[in-house]
Design a protein around this nucleic acid. Sequence first.
RNA 1: GCCCGGAUGGUGGAAUUGGUAGACACGCUGGACUUAAAAUCCAGUGGCCAGUGAUGGCCGUGUGGGUUCAAGUCCCACUCCGGGUACCA
Length: 704
Amino acid sequence: MRLAYYDNAQVWYCEHDKIVCSNEEVLADGTHEKCGNPVVKRNLKQWMLRIPHYAERLLAGLETVEWPEGIKDMQKNWIGKSTGAEVDFQVDGHDKIIRVFTTRPDTLFGATYMVLAPEHELVNQITTEDKKEDVASYKRKAALKSDLDRTDLAKEKTGEFTGSYAINPVNGEKIPIWVADYVLMGYGTGAIMAVPSNDMRDFEFATEFNIPIKPILDPDEADEETRARVVKGEECWEEDGVFINSSSSFGGLDINGLKKQDGISKTVAWLEEKGLGTEMINYKMRDWLFSRQRYWGEPFPVIHWEDGEIEVMDDHALPLELPKLANYTPGDNGESPLANAGDWLSVTDAKGRKGRRETNTMPQWAGSCWYYLRFTDARNDDEPFSKEAEHYWMPVDQYIGGAEHAVLHLLYSRFWHKVLYDLGIVSTDEPFTRLFNQGMILAFAYESATGAKVASDLVKEKDGKYFHSQTGEELKQIVAKMSKSLKNVINPDDVVKNYGADSLRLYEMFMGPLEATKPWTELGVKGVFGFLGRAYRFFTELKNIHQDEEDPGITKSLHQTIKKAQQDIEGLHFNTAISQMMIFTNNCIKKGKVNKQSATTFARVLAPFAPHLAEEIWSIHGEPPTIANQPFPEYNEEYLKEDVFEYPVSFNGKLRFKLELPLSMPEDEIRQQVLDHESAAKWLNGGEPKKIIVVKGRIINIVI
RNA sequence: GCCCGGAUGGUGGAAUUGGUAGACACGCUGGACUUAAAAUCCAGUGGCCAGUGAUGGCCGUGUGGGUUCAAGUCCCACUCCGGGUACCA
């Protein structure tokens, strides 16, 4: 199967600017964001990629990668797999067939009408004479509606009867065929069977247009009142239940008394046997429109010959580079600026045949889908990347990026990578093994009581409250994205100038979990700046440093620090790794002295976080450059062993006192020790304990 | 509407996945140093109550229930906030 094809696609076109607009540029009222003039739909020949062909593989691959579940869910929803059946309905009095997709073939008995999308090709053919005008007018209106109008605002259902009827294949009943824009041409077959008793949208439509609602399901698990209403067809029920009114001698199908799953299997088997339908899987994901009408972007290496042949250029003729243009204005009829590139545009082959180059260019995805592969071998002039480099580096062990890429970049590049894998160009099926979504760093901003945002340079602080420096109005401090208009942008260069690069880096890691969205505070930077200063002073001042054997408490704390930092780095919990380093430093400062060996070992733990300062400590101790080449220290489990534990002793779950006991003490003895403790009597209050729970090295709980 | 997150002191956040809630840091209070300020150092700091005092008690992880010897952590219902999505048959 060819993965790319060239065909008509609908695009938004602004006749004022004479350009094709992206969806985001089209406002809800159907006008162009930039110029305010209305946009129209227009057909343009475009390159499309058949990404749904990879839908199953894209779903299956999600099970093999370590990604946040939320992102996986978003991709699954985007792919939107649904299993159901395609069913054929005969149009009464025509030799036409309307094919529909449904996830609920079991509800065929409840189908009381059908709906075609306004763009459906059968609409004109089956509309009766007396309805032609109304239907044509409805189609025009639907075509003018923007996508948003058609979806968001159109809670009120609209539609028009075509005058024709279809035959319900399960019972031979004639059901009216309507046209309505709540059915989309781009999904399924662009036509549906409507079951108002069991589909909310159909229920609303049927109510609006007085179409019969035929109950076919008894919701046996619902409350009595709901059940009664549903069985009378007064309420819509989308959950499971027991089928009623679902048999007919017309086709011989009977699913009365069955529940949803059995109803589906039996109906599908019946449809397949009669040749009226088949089981079918549908995806929400559509073909991917890959053409853009812009100058910037990779040009398609394609020539359109005068005889109609569309030729893809040979590899050896690549790369096809963009021509230098004096004028970047769009070509006619929404064509890209390349349509103006005279010399570049026209080609003649050896036989004198004339051709024109493709003027569309590729979207930025063409680069972002595989840039990580180029990164493995960026200076390779002969090929995109060597097999060796790809094999060595791929797949990406840890990909860090924002959650906003969840369904576009991260899905497109997975698709791209799988295609390359199938072509034998890359050696793995998935590009990114682990994915991590870092949070955004925000900043404080200020707003008035009316919600108006106030730029930070107009804000005065007094006693923890904030005021407008001109109006004196009291302001509320809020957290918002950094923006020029709010004047709350933090320039990293300034932070580096005032506090140093190590402080900037350390603060960003210390301010909270990597995935959290959190506001920048200058006081926070001061905090880590202070820590770095304390550490630097303590570990470099000669009076603090000794060569004797290290104090066991300090050794223990050092090894705890190595262990915690190592584990936290692996888990990307940098904030807690840093707090452990602060604890170690505080311990040393309290002790007042430290062994030289401990000081340089600590410098090696600190080095990945604050490389400059760690290097200073390292070199002041006469160690050879550079600490960057030193391995991360290893901890020794021996030093971390505990032989006593201070047990928290609680009565009925309430902590009452603490008791230090050897960890080796058997449970029976612990029980005795606890009961003999002077404070125990007070809480036992003369009574006998019901139960004493001892969790070794954790807790003691006495139930009274 | 649906899907995905989240809610812990004055603030940013810890909490070995059911076992001492508030680590670490900011801020604040008091003290030392200083002519003074900054910087630095020391001590205290969840709330309420009792006591001159060491100390002791009660309450506390958005709300209301539940499971458990034990709940920030698990279950049920809900509130609020953030992000995504939109008639997908």
